[in-house]
């Protein structure tokens, strides 16, 4: 699953960086621009402007961090899954998200940044990840709703990235999107079964939707008017469709699904606009969104501290693997000598 974060700078909150000064070699820059304009792919060995590289590393690593942190809210329900089938599905899903993190770290490494450097960014709190994962998963239906809405929003965000200008990222996205679609269908199916079940099960689904709906809308990032990073991203073919357009597509696709499911989306302003041929929706609470992005949401500290603890607790395991490999190499050298 994914992240609002294309347009969220790592360090600052709402304050965005100024446009990139062009100090690059003009000939190389012209060739790069021409390739972008022709909708061609940039590959790791190709020349690219520094700002493009930096933006990509930031975006891909935020995306990777989101996959890894995103394992935690759903992992919270593995031990309590109410049937063995759902337990197996959930383990497989959380594992897939770990796999997405892996491809994405690898894609970012092709830009010359190591996984350790990226993890250091996450663990020190410098790098962002999708804010959707800073909310608690409070009942079993959260698992289904995350699949349906969060993976669903991720797909909306990521389908355009399958055509992103950076080759390794676009290829990773093709594979990730296939799996996210599968997650979305599984999540929706689990909710359908619950909605056909007992009163208590239906109440769980509605409660989860009530808590997560607005957070999912915010996943697409700030309104276009407040997203200067988006303009640069569009220019570079890193971002293809604006935040507001994606958000609208998501709302339009989700309303009929909610009807079939029999849940109410918690927005009194949500209604079909015949003139626009889209659903209108209410005001997103951006103050709350930025609070959470800046680290002051309900679960930011728990999520981050848990990642840091896993990493620190695993240090001796990684050290052992490294020490053993070195010993093996030394033994091989001795034998060869």
């Amino acid at each position: 699953m994914y992240t609002q974060s294309f347009s969220v700078p790592d360090n600052a909150g709402q304050k965005n960086v100024a446009a990139v000064p062009s100090t690059e070699n003009p000939e190389l820059m012209a060739a790069f621009d021409a390739r972008i304009d022709a909708d061609g792919r940039i590959e790791p060995q190709d020349w690219m402007p520094d700002a493009y590289r930096k933006t990509l590393v930031r975006q891909i690593s935020q995306h990777a961090h989101s996959e890894i942190v995103g394992m935690l809210p759903e992992g919270n329900w593995i031990s309590r899954a109410p049937s063995l089938k759902r337990k197996a599905i959930l383990i497989a899903k959380v594992q897939d998200e770990g796999g997405h993190g892996l491809y994405l770290y690898s894609a970012a490494e092709t830009l010359g940044t190591s996984r350790d450097q990226m993890l250091e960014g996450l663990h020190s709190g410098k790098a962002k990840y999708s804010s959707i994962f800073n909310y608690p998963t409070l009942n079993w239906a959260d698992v289904g709703v995350i699949g349906w809405l969060v993976d669903g929003a991720a797909i909306m965000n990521q389908i355009p990235l399958c055509r992103c200008s950076y080759g390794p990222y676009s290829r990773a996205m093709v594979r990730v999107c296939k799996e996210e679609s599968f997650h979305q269908r599984q999540g929706y199916e689990a909710l359908l079964v619950m909605m056909q079940g007992t009163e208590a099960q239906r109440a769980m689904v509605q409660d989860a939707v009530n808590r997560l709906w607005w957070k999912c809308l915010a996943m697409f990032g700030p309104p276009d008017a407040d997203s200067p990073n988006s303009a640069q991203g569009m220019r570079w073919g890193i971002k293809r469709i604006s935040n507001d357009e994606l958000r609208q597509k998501f709302v339009d696709a989700t309303v009929p699904q909610a009807k079939v499911l029999g849940v109410t989306l918690p927005d009194p302003d949500l209604k079909w606009n015949e003139a626009r041929q889209h659903y209108d929706y209410g005001q997103i609470d951006w103050q709350e969104f930025w609070n959470t992005v800046e680290g002051n949401g309900p679960c930011n500290k728990e999520r981050l501290a848990t990642r840091v603890k896993a990493h620190n607790d695993g240090q001796w395991v990684r050290d052992a693997a490294l020490a053993y490999t070195r010993k093996q190499q030394q033994r091989a050298q001795k034998e060869a000598a």
């Binding site: 394992m71 593995i78 031990s79 197996a88 959380v94 770990g98 607790d313 240090q315």
Partner: peptide, 24 residues
Amino acid sequence: AEWCGHGPILEEDIAMGNVSLDYI
């Protein structure tokens, strides 16, 4: 499965998830 999300390294987190999935 208790290791899901807490593994010592990402590859191993995924591998232990696999083991768990086989057992379930």
